[in-house]
Amino acid sequence: MMRAMLMILGLAMASAAEAQRRPPPPPIAPHMMSLPVLEADLRAKAGSNIVQFERDSYVLTPQAQLILDRQAAWLLANPWVRASIEGHADTRQTRDYALALAERRAAAARNFLLARGVPLQQLAIVSWGRERPVVEAAHEATWLQNSRVVTVLKQ
């Protein structure tokens, strides 16, 4: 009962705050934005913060290059945002090979961004091997989703 009342109170206050903010807010400087907001902006402008790879491959596909081109443009436009380029391998690769392959993928993506003019200091690379899959799948089509490089923004 008490909790329900508090929730109603909270909602009322939230909508009051909403009403106060109704006039368009002044533009917030990008470096003041939270990471989720920045990442949403990166995804919107680059198409994705993720690029996919073929099995056992670290070669950037045309689709991956397209996304990385736009990521590079975004990073150049937001030079105060640092990015961790995080490589992943699929769960059907052996543990150590997955670490090496994911590092190689991250390095390939990072080198592409460097070639597009993104400063070295803005980029770090990390290999997660097969330790952070997005899907645990029984079929090749789905487990290949794990073969990816994710651009993770840091402040």
Binding site: L99, A100, R104, N111, S127
Partner: peptide
Amino acid sequence: FSMAGEGNS
């Protein structure tokens, strides 16, 4: 052990 750098382990 293995050590990786610049895409080479």
